[in-house]
Design a protein around this nucleic acid. Sequence first.
DNA 1: TGCGAGATTACG
DNA 2: GTAATCTCGCAA
Length: 192
Amino acid sequence: MKRIVDRGLFEGSSVDIAPRLLNKLFVAGDCVGRIVEVEAYEGQGDMASHAYRNKTPRNEVMFGPPGFLYVYFTYGMHYCMNIVCRPEGEASAILIRALEPLEGIEEMQSRRPPKAQGIKQLTSGPAKLCQALDIRGDSNGIDLCHKNAHLYLADDGMAPPKDPLTGPRIGITRGLEHQWRWWLKGNPYVSK
DNA sequence: TGCGAGATTACG
DNA sequence: GTAATCTCGCAA
């Protein structure tokens, strides 16, 4: 049985919340994946964050209320998705880097390239999982804590891991001093 | 007003 | 190793 996640979970810092998102479920229509890898991004003070400098059309959802989806377009080609944390006016978000596919696997495969149909190639990266779940710019700013929404976060009772692995975030050149990436030990679906 | 870098991926 | 080619910050 799945319960939608309460908005209260996201009212604090992404750094505190990110490891607790592991093992939660991300639901996109008929597709469901378990969160197995996340990264935390703060606002002012985090040089790697999109919200480090100014509010822009791209990052404005990060400054909004918690529990909403922040989707950005990058490298002229890919979408990545985050969950907004902290109260309105404070920027903070958690990047979903990898999911373990649970339901709707054929639908995910239909959106991935013909040569990337393997179960481990569907959602083992932040842009891969957005493509598999058909998350694009029109999903930016959606409320993930709203009942009956097409996109939402759910809890099926599996607790967060007691011993998640942690390390520096991937693909950045600044902010590498922070160990703000967390993943499930030994899980075959993490991005690496 | 233009250019380089970027929370990436697939393919040669 | 490189192309795909959007957004933003900063230099000119």
